[in-house]
Design a protein around this nucleic acid. Structure first.
Lengths: 186, 186
DNA sequence: ACTCGATACGGAGGAACCTCCGGTTGAGTT
DNA sequence: AACTCAACCGGAGGTTCCTCCGTATCGAGT
């Protein structure tokens, strides 16, 4: 799909990512990009070439954890009734976004970008939601005319607008509201 | 409520606001704060004292238009059936946020701040929503256990997450979803 | 092994941000 | 009118951001 990077480019990219993960968790998400570049032993220009925006770098750095979140979807389906699995996963989604302070900026970038290279994460999320929702649609609990992508954007909106720790409860109520909106009515 | 500003302080504040409104509409919302301060003929320090963050300045600059948005609430109620009035106003809300590019940053600040001095706008919005929603609750169309503030945050979330012009249609679907979630079920 | 585009690198530099504090001014008090 | 001090002003300066382009390196083809 994407042409393979030149050897030096790939090496530097990995160095940058490693440094980013380290510095982000050490000094918080507002670590300076200059510091990351220096830590990785590359020029600032190189950093910007690989990750044009701060969000792009954060997104890449957290992709692992995001994969974990997505993996939890099928796992929950095995352990819980489908409706509880969905709701639990939604909670985790919000927790994830809320916990990784500053991640919400990255999230917005990921979500907003239609066909960008960062669409990977978005696809991943969408397919997870798809898996969680489809059994409920089949069972007639949720309506069938809902676009998966709308659910994702809805979740993001909640995390974005009620992302402060003090608003966690409100976020919960909004998740209820969202699920209610999705519910099938005879 | 708030102690009256000293004469010079009030004068500078007004100058700053006037310059901000002018430059924002002239050069877009990414006009530099330095430029605004210079245009107003005050030091950058003065700007930061009155408006600690860029969002605070934007919020203040757009307060007029925001008031207009709120005024439209009662007006719509007079012209349309209550349910249509609500939905139309929601659309305007999203349009407003979407159109004033960069406003979403301000919005987030306004929304997120619990008891800040910028809570004024938030109160204004909440009371408008209250007016739009209460007739529908009285009529049994919407459920009565919904917090007005949740509706506001929900709206903000939609505007925040689906704020790109290309996502306008999706935002519409999400508004439908939100209203559905609010609907009373026998 | 060598050549030669294509690709990637590095970091200087200009722009914007935001803080900090010595100096100035408004408005009560005597 | 002179005094006083809390409140306000201004802008230099330290940080971070991000672009731009001359130089260095890769690797496919010969």
């Amino acid at each position: 799909m994407t042409k393979p990077l030149r050897a030096d480019a790939r090496r530097n990219r990995d160095l940058l990512l490693a440094s980013a993960v380290r510095l982000f968790s050490e000094k918080g998400l507002d670590a300076t990009l200059d510091a990351i570049a220096k830590d990785a032993g590359v020029g600032i220009g190189t950093l910007y070439r690989h990750f044009p925006t701060r969000e792009a770098l954060i997104e890449a750095a957290y992709r692992n954890e995001l994969d974990q979140l997505c993996d939890a979807g099928p796992a929950l389906l095995r352990e819980l009734p489908a409706d509880q699995a969905l709701r639990t996963w939604m909670d985790r989604f919000v927790d994830y976004m809320t916990t990784k302070i500053g991640m919400s900026d990255a999230l917005r970038a990921v979500i907003a970008s239609g066909g960008d290279p960062y669409a990977h994460s978005r696809d991943r999320l969408n397919s997870t939601i798809e898996q969680l929702v489809s059994p409920l649609i089949a069972a007639g609990t949720l309506r069938g005319d809902v676009l998966v992508d709308d659910v994702l954007i809805g979740l993001s909106g909640i995390a974005l607008a009620a992302g402060e720790p003090s608003q966690r409860e409100q976020a919960g109520r909004l998740l209820d509201l969202l699920v209610d909106g999705l519910r099938f009515r005879g």
